[in-house]
Design a protein around this nucleic acid. Structure first.
Lengths: 329, 329
DNA sequence: TATCCAAATTGGATCGTTCAAGATGGCGAG
DNA sequence: CTCGCCATCTTGAACGATCCAATTTGGATA
């Protein structure tokens, strides 16, 4: 194996000092054009790459971003995070950062992991996915001045940190409007229990759109934990109670359940899901589609803003979802 | 912010030298019990964590493992990798390693990424997923003596490296036997074009099991690229040509296509997919289930074997899949 | 009590990079 | 001719850990 190529090797090869090589890499403008070229040639000829560990020791920056990979719950919604992660890896890469994975089963362990990652790897930043009311994680990170971005807006007014989110209300509103345009009036909603920021937001989009169209939403919605079986049960309940002609759901899992509940009904009840998961695509379920790649890219943008430029809090980003039309609506 | 806690801080606090603290961390057995305890107490009291960058500089080891995150193709099979990744993160964590993500669109770029990751981050090892005939990646890594494991066995006899795989032939054999036991005889197979190691392996399991049961498999199989539409097309073709009463598929995508093709046929044609993806669970598709968590764990086992112990090539691991029974078979 | 040996501990060098400060050389002004 | 200045480049030190060689310590032995 060839000798290890360090900055000293390059310096010797280009007949300059180590510092000059370092300058070519970090502040090219202060090095004379001719020298710069000579150093660059040496770098290319030797295939030199700056050692990140050594660099990190001096600068305290690791160019590493941490993201959590979820313990795939029902496997349907899990894919949302996976697609986001993929986008994150690509964009971070382009910005010169790498993504480090971690897992955690609850918030306490997750915070312990932060502590560990920061202590041993000196991570530059965290990307948190899915925020809840009174999220202890954001508070912990903010207390320690650790840069982070959340994919999901803070649901408590007091938290001020950079975030990227998709406008869930706009998504369900768009879905509801689509159904109204198709002539539906009794448009129901299957959602999550009141109190989850995301769920409330999605319900509001449906409710407000119905009201704006002079349809009274009272009695047209049901709430449950997420899941296919739960969705089916609640949809049967709705069918018995109010006989809706269409339903907007807070997730594809719920929508799949609804699809099973309406099997055989004629004329068919329209169903729209949320997240445009692979399952939705596979079964032909119309669904609200989040721009996950875009969201990941904006997360990286915000982070590099915080890390490279001033340490100011950049403006949050709210993205608009689209409606992926298939044959269930 | 409090002063940074280094090994020197701990040493001062425990009234010993830096080296003794280092010994407590790396070779506890050579330190007297009493001293060890005092150092441990100091470490806990101060919340000391060894700085990975500094450690890496001396030892040349980063305790970082790289894994690739795929550009979710059809979103169905992509989830397989995601579940594997999750298992990998968990197990690596337990073994004291962290998982670094990367993406690449083709083999050449992937190799360029290896070079970069090795040069700048001094990665300890790679986990490759999905191996093909004449895979240039394994050759590149082996040439440079970079430790790696593949999830997927080497399909060319000459490659000798640690690998973990799931016995695909055993999976399709199990599926086929299940159908035979249920009284089926005309059991078809939907698979991928000849030449892909994985696809050929899965087809062989079906074929051999039929032969063993004195059923001639001739004409009972079709091959295509992966996809739902492709599966549907080929299944229609099979129905017209040989009217099978059951079909085993090389993937859940193909199986979903088959399900659409058989809609309305009575008595229903049995369908079995492969990979037990969330989509299969959602639509009630019986499918061959790979022990992905187990596979990931064994990958980490092999890697730690190579990294921590001798640099010998550990024995490969072949895991047995299970059949997730649902209502399509 | 002095001596010796092994176990436990210590101080200095080192990994590859960047930071801070110092050296060099060319050029115009006094 | 000399000085100062600017642009450019070089030198020495530091980051925080581990390795290596040297030294101290404690207990057993003579």
């Amino acid at each position: 194996m060839a000798e290890k190529v360090t900055i000293a090797t390059v310096a010797r090869h280009a007949r300059v000092s180590r510092q000059t090589v370092s300058n070519v890499l970090n502040s090219p403008h202060i090095v004379r054009q001719e020298t710069r070229q000579r150093v660059q040639d040496a770098i290319n000829a030797l295939g030199y790459r700056a050692n990140q560990a050594a660099r990190q020791m001096r600068t305290g920056r690791s160019r590493l971003i941490a993201a959590r990979i979820e313990p795939t719950r029902d496997g349907i919604n899990g894919s949302v995070l996976d697609r986001f992660l993929h986008g994150l890896t690509e964009t971070a890469d382009a910005a010169g950062y790498r993504v480090l994975l971690y897992t955690a089963t609850d918030h306490d362990r997750e915070i312990a992991t932060y502590d560990d990652l920061l202590g041993t790897y000196e991570l530059d930043a965290f990307v948190l996915v899915g925020t809840t009311h009174g999220d202890p994680r954001t508070a912990w990170l903010a207390d320690r001045n650790v840069p982070f971005v959340t994919f999901g807006r803070p649901w408590d007014a007091l938290d001020a940190h950079p975030w990227v989110d998709v406008d869930g209300a706009a998504g369900t509103a768009r879905a509801t409007r689509h159904l109204l345009d198709a002539g539906h009036r009794r448009i129901a909603f299957l959602g999550w229990p009141v109190g989850s920021g995301v769920g409330d937001d999605r319900r509001a989009g449906w409710q407000d759109t119905l009201r704006a169209a002079d349809v009274d939403p009272t009695g047209l919605h049901r709430e449950t934990e997420d899941g296919i079986a739960e969705g089916e049960r609640l949809m049967r309940d709705l069918l018995d109670a109010v006989a809706p002609t269409a339903v907007v759901c807070a997730s594809d899992s719920l929508a799949l359940g609804a699809l099973q509940a309406i099997r055989g009904i004629d004329p068919p009840v329209s169903v729209i899901g949320f997240d445009d998961t692979p399952v939705a695509a596979a079964v032909g379920l119309t669904s609200v589609s989040q721009p996950l790649g875009e969201a990941a890219a904006r997360c990286v943008d915000l982070l590099t803003g915080v890390l490279d430029d001033d340490h100011q809090t950049p403006a949050p980003v709210l993205l608009q979802p689209a409606l992926a039309l298939r044959h269930t609506a």
